[in-house]
């Protein structure tokens, strides 16, 4: 027993010493570029923060002008400074973390523009371990606080690793209503014997078979983001990114349209309850506006990635929505 006591007291002493040394000589965690970019742009007094994912970017060599939607919007309203914070697979819970950060740092942009990519509610994004951005979320929550001094040890011991595993992701069951469609792995990476048409069908089933509800993780993040921005006195502008609904409907049939209407309606009513309008661009564009993605894992899949004319359409819609024409007297 005396040995145990001796061990116990020495352990406490060791922990205290390590804690002191760590406080005096903390290791550094590399801050994600997007966060340092936001900080520096806000120091220069950006008027608009425009978050975005791959749907805001150019994805094809066919585009003569590769400007992103953010860059096009900047051209449309040159008087406003736009801070473009984008990452190919950013999504609602990362935006929510950014919202908390903006509130904590006391940044006051006039608008925050947030795209809602409808694919981001599907398992491909929602529970994919590669798309969790735990590092960004944690850093946003603790940056410039005393916790940063202890973040490196926590990071070395995997605090940035996502809770969901590749196994649980790959073996998640996908449903269309009550109809079981298959596992993520079967739909996302079907065997080579499956025909190209069927590969596309499976991928689209995976992306668009979900039915949204208020308990969905990303829907809750959306709500949290709205409330955070409202608390900070910042006007959020949400828009649903256009999707190639004609092609998707061709594969998934009329049930897709029914589900799509229900899902969008849910987002509308959720935001309406908070007094925030939603710009629905999801059904606005015909197939010729879309690139069939050349991203390696999604080769041959229709997606929300847009040609220049599609991106310009979104930029112009946003310019109108933000009432920038009157605000900045641009005469658009």
């Amino acid at each position: 027993m005396t040995h145990m006591k001796k061990f116990f007291f020495k352990s406490i002493l060791l922990v205290v010493l390590v804690f002191i040394v760590q406080s005096l000589c903390p290791g550094e965690v590399v801050i994600p570029n997007e966060i340092t970019r936001l900080d520096s742009l806000m120091q220069y007094g950006a008027d608009i923060i425009y978050f975005g994912d791959s749907t805001t970017e150019s994805f094809t060599a066919e585009d003569a002008n590769k400007a992103s939607i953010g860059a096009l919007l900047q051209m449309l309203i040159p008087q406003a400074q736009i801070a473009k914070i984008t990452h190919p697979s950013y999504q609602m819970d990362v935006y929510a973390a950014y919202g908390r950060y903006i509130l904590r740092k006391g940044y006051h942009p006039k608008f925050v523009i947030i795209p809602i990519n409808l694919r981001s509610f599907s398992p491909v994004w929602d529970i994919n371990p590669s798309y969790q951005f735990d590092k960004e979320k944690i850093v946003l929550d603790v940056k410039d606080t005393f916790v940063m001094r202890y973040l490196k040890p926590l990071a070395v011991f995997k605090i940035f690793e996502p809770n969901c595993s590749q196994f649980s992701y790959q073996y998640t069951r996908v449903f269309e209503g009550k109809k079981y469609l298959g596992l993520v792995k079967d739909l996302f990476t079907p065997p080579s014997s499956v025909s190209p048409e069927d590969v596309t069908l499976r991928y689209l089933q995976l992306c668009y078979s979900y039915s949204l509800n208020y308990q969905h993780r990303k829907v809750r993040s959306l709500l949290q983001l709205v409330r955070t921005l409202k608390t900070a006195g910042i006007k959020p502008i949400f828009y649903i990114a256009p999707l190639d609904y004609i092609t998707v409907e061709k594969y998934l049939g009329s049930k897709f349209r029914e589900r799509h209407i229900e899902n969008v309606q849910l987002l509308h009513s959720l935001l309406a309850q908070e007094g925030v309008p939603l710009l629905d661009l999801s059904n606005s564009l015909d197939p010729e506006f879309f690139i069939w993605s050349t991203v390696s894992t999604e080769k041959g899949h229709p997606s929300e990635h847009l040609f220049l004319k599609g991106r310009m359409f979104v930029a112009m819609s946003l310019a109108k929505k933000t009432s920038m024409n009157t605000f900045f007297n641009l005469g658009l």
Partner: peptide, 20 residues
């Protein structure tokens, strides 16, 4: 020995690589 322990733990915690 105690210096070794504290420095050793500190090194593991701060010189370790942050990657999966």
């Amino acid at each position: 020995r105690w210096i070794f322990y504290v420095v050793g733990i500190w090194m593991v915690m701060n010189w370790g690589v942050v990657a999966d």
